[in-house]
């Protein structure tokens, strides 16, 4: 092994093999997927991520939600994700068609969020939870995201978008209200859009259990 060309070509060829297999292949095979038509309604799965939810992805990324929350449901024989109620079926490539980036995640310090929009449908719950997680779940170790909210004096009538039902040490004092910033509204819109509970040809839903 004293020849430069041999080492040079060798290290490039070995690396090129995985580059072709694990980068170029998914780029070609998964990079141009189309949504699946929903014959019942004429719509498409997965549904388009729209409006505020698109901006919410940036807030989700900026504040590093992925370091504690995954967004993937593993299949049943391998894991108990489905039995744990993370979702009705495993997630497949098409589920991430409309998101940017794909927040698959590698940690479950907090619960998986693949279907958080199904489990918690109420925007105010999310605002309360982001503002002060421990006022909602006493044992939570999620940090407070109150830097995404404004504490302001109530001018006449309380604002329409003020967070309702806040309790605990971080609750606003009398005469004050907590109002979400645009970032907080976008983040909650994004969380509410997380619903992977539709069927896909490659991942149908299991028969309903009554």
């Amino acid at each position: 092994m004293n020849k430069l060309p041999m080492i040079f070509v060798g290290v490039l060829i070995t690396f090129a093999s995985s580059w072709l297999g694990l980068v170029v292949y998914p780029f070609l095979a998964l990079g141009h997927m189309q949504p699946a038509p929903d014959e019942d309604t004429g719509g498409y799965f997965p549904p388009t991520t729209t409006g505020l939810a698109v901006a919410g992805q940036r807030v989700y990324a900026a504040n590093g939600c992925i370091y504690c929350h995954s967004q993937q449901v593993r299949p049943a024989p391998l894991s108990t994700d489905i039995a744990k109620g993370l979702g009705p079926r495993r997630t497949v490539a098409r589920d991430y068609l409309r998101v940017q980036p794909a927040f698959l995640g590698t940690m479950r310090t907090g619960p998986d969020l693949t279907n958080i929009g199904v489990r918690q449908e109420e925007a105010n719950w999310h605002h309360r939870h982001l503002y002060d997680p421990r006022s909602v779940t006493e044992w939570s170790i999620m940090p407070s995201f109150r830097f995404l909210y404004k504490l302001q004096l109530i001018q006449g009538q309380p604002s329409d978008d003020a967070v309702k039902g806040l309790t605990g040490p971080l609750a606003p004092p009398a005469g004050y209200e907590v109002v979400p910033t645009d970032d907080a509204k976008a983040l909650v819109a994004y969380l509410l859009s997380l619903k992977r509970n539709y069927p896909l040809p490659e991942a149908p839903l299991p028969p309903a259990k009554k």
Binding site: P37, N197, P199, L205
Partner: peptide
Amino acid sequence: SPSAVPSASPAAPAASPA
């Protein structure tokens, strides 16, 4: 009833009960 999707293809890696 989203459980029974007509488009479910038999060649897909369907969960067997479906």
